[in-house]
Design a protein around this nucleic acid. Structure first.
Length: 566
RNA sequence: CGGGACGUAGCGCAGCCUGGUAGCGUACCUGAAUGGGGUUCAGGUGGUCGCGAGUUCAAAUCUCGCCGUCCCGACCA
């Protein structure tokens, strides 16, 4: 491909609305162009990289026996009503009406459509398993699209779905995808980790996230360096530092605590450590209000709480509602004397003796509160957010915290969709059963952006060879010099004939411009052809990653290049 | 959904406070020189100042509304 014949608008300056490096470099290297917030055109150079990644994905999925198909982006509302997600999915689901005022949505994911396909064709256990995938445009109306291709509203996703007649069979396919994903990310030369994850709106009962490690990552993950336990912040569990309170229970006492609201304030006002304070959080859900107790130095993990309470909506109650429910203002809630509201406690408060709690009354707290004697929660659970330094539940090693970009997510769905949508099969005994499903997502654009986040320098992108839009770039430094032009043309022709993916900068630009652009777009290997060296029948090979330049005879460039590029 | 900021040439910005019909850099076009790291000089093209109302003799500038874009937050009792 000749640059003069290509469409590659590079930018010298940093676009002002690009905040993260992958976004900025993709814009500058002419890979993408924004159409609207979170919505991008993929320009030729970007599309080449994207196709590279898609093909890696295809190869690895084909290898595990998954079969590619393509489903519609526009999906009828009826299917979403059947699964129950038309109402549950929320505002992220882009709903549209056709000319007959019929409801549709632009698919954020395809569980409904694929289940609808399968239920009509699956009859017997003999038809199972089925393992299908597609690479297709998704739309999620994100509240806050950001970071270029990392959080888009319209994006390419590889989504796979598998159907089984037994758990064991699902387990095998799940493992196949797990391994295939590992291979994909390894082939992309990404530094990543796999963590246990919450299943969110997709549902199901087991899931793993593939996280590319990056400081700009939106998700926090915890990882045990010793036993390699890993989980994202929503799912992570840990052992807390235990505090032993071997004191006697003292008499309950109400104390005046004017203007003392937060744990921090209570701690310093009363001179008690935060570990002896029990925080009482009032949550509002679609079912009821709940009081949730947790140790003063810990934070509530709302995802865990949501799962525990089995609710769709969960929000901290507003000031007025707290007053209505507890009788006291915000900042003074406590478990004592609460009426008409269930109290759930996190395990972290179990051993606290002579604790401090709010008195549900302005400017008052109780001290020397003891669980069992003074109050009893109606249930116990793990509601806490893991914090740095907490210990691994398996091996007691302090957990490490990283930031990551979620590039892949696999789920065991079970019968969450097959049951309501009646995707049934007949088993060996002639009984009708819902199909057992798994689903497997991989973000294409996001993976590409992650690769740039992990591999760049101040000059531009440094593509790992498997994702690079081209493997080689010929820099013809003085194309008006006949010798240079002829040699450049010759080398270009040769490489094309050998089937190499080579980009030829034949533009009438100065050398500096070509070097800068080549570095910006990050092609791993440069073939540099200039007047002086060309006269001596020599060329240079430049390596983007190291900046190294190696001079050699024209006759040996190809062999050497192939050796280096291995 | 809340808070903040921005919107002026393809891109990056100034001008706005203190109203008088637009400027810088870069890119682009022409010419010349240069020719291995965004070169230099000369000349030139390009903007209904996001949109709409209002105030005014006069609005990029002041006022109001809308639209768009980006950032931060989503939370600790």
């Amino acid at each position: 491909m000749r640059w003069s014949n290509y469409f590659l608008p590079t930018l010298k300056e940093n676009p002002k609305d690009a905040e993260v490096v992958s976004h900025s470099l993709m814009l500058r290297s002419g890979m993408i162009k924004k159409a609207a917030s979170g919505i991008y055109s993929i320009l030729p150079l970007g599309w080449r990289s994207m196709k590279k990644l898609m093909n890696i994905v295809r190869e690895e999925l084909d290898r595990i026996g998954a079969v590619e198909l393509i489903m519609p982006a526009i999906q009828p509302a009826e299917l979403w009503m059947e699964s129950g997600r038309w109402f549950k999915y929320g505002k992220e689901l882009l709903r549209i009406k056709d000319r007959h005022e019929r409801d549709f949505c632009f698919g954020p994911t395809h569980e409904e459509v694929i289940t609808d396909i399968l239920r009509d064709y699956i009859q017997s256990y003999k038809d199972l398993p089925v393992n299908l995938y597609q690479i297709q445009t998704k739309f999620r109306d994100e509240v806050r699209p950001r970071f270029g291709l990392i959080r888009q509203r319209e994006f390419f996703m590889k989504d796979g779905y598998s159907f089984h007649s037994s758990e064991e069979c699902l387990d095998r396919t799940y493992q196949d995808y797990y391994n295939a994903y590992r291979k994909i990310f390894e082939r992309c030369r990404l530094e990543y980790t796999v963590v246990e994850a919450d299943t969110g709106t997709i549902g199901g009962y087991q899931s793993h996230e593939f996280m590319v490690l990056a400081e700009t990552g939106e998700d926090a993950i915890f990882f045990c360096p010793s036993c390699s336990y890993g989980a994202n912040a929503e799912k992570a569990v840990s052992k807390l530092k235990e505090f032993i309170f071997d004191e006697k229970e003292k008499a309950l006492e109400k104390v005046h605590t004017p203007q003392v609201h937060t744990v921090e304030e209570v701690s310093s006002f009363l001179g008690v450590p935060e570990e002896k304070i029990i925080k009482t959080m009032i949550y509002e859900t679609e079912k009821a209000f709940y009081a949730v107790l947790i140790r003063g130095d810990r934070s509530i993990n709302e995802t865990k709480l949501k799962n525990f309470l089995d609710v769709q909506f969960l929000n901290l109650a507003s000031e007025e509602k707290i007053e209505r429910v507890t009788g006291g203002p915000m900042g003074f809630s406590g478990p004592l004397g609460l009426k008409g509201i269930e109290i759930f406690a996190d395990h972290s408060i179990k051993n606290i003796k002579n604790a401090v709690v709010g008195a549900n009354e302005k400017d008052y707290h109780y001290v020397n509160v003891n669980m069992g004697r003074d109050f009893n929660p109606s249930g116990w659970g793990d509601f806490q957010m893991v914090q740095r330094g907490d210990l691994c539940v398996n091996c007691n090693t302090p957990l490490q915290e990283y930031r990551g970009i979620e590039v892949g997510h696999i789920f065991k769905l079970g019968t969450k969709y097959s049951e309501p949508m009646k995707c049934l099969y007949i088993d060996e005994k002639g009984q009708k059963k819902p199909v057992i499903m798994g689903c497997y997502g991989l973000g294409i654009g996001r993976t590409l952006a992650s690769a740039i986040e992990q591999s760049h320098d101040e000059k531009g992108i440094i593509w790992p060879l498997p994702l690079s839009p081209f493997s080689f770039i010929i820099l013809s430094l003085n194309p008006e010099d006949k010798g240079v032009r002829e040699l450049s043309d010759k080398i270009y022709q040769e490489m094309v004939q050998k089937g190499e993916e080579v980009f030829y900068d034949d533009r009438e630009e100065r050398a500096g411009v070509k070097f800068k652009d080549a570095e910006l777009i990050g092609i791993p290997y440069q073939i540099i052809i200039g007047s002086k060296k060309a006269k001596e029948n020599k060329v240079e090979i430049g390596i983007r990653k190291t900046g190294e330049k190696i001079t050699m005879e024209v006759s040996e460039y190809y062999e050497k290049l192939k050796n280096i590029a291995l």
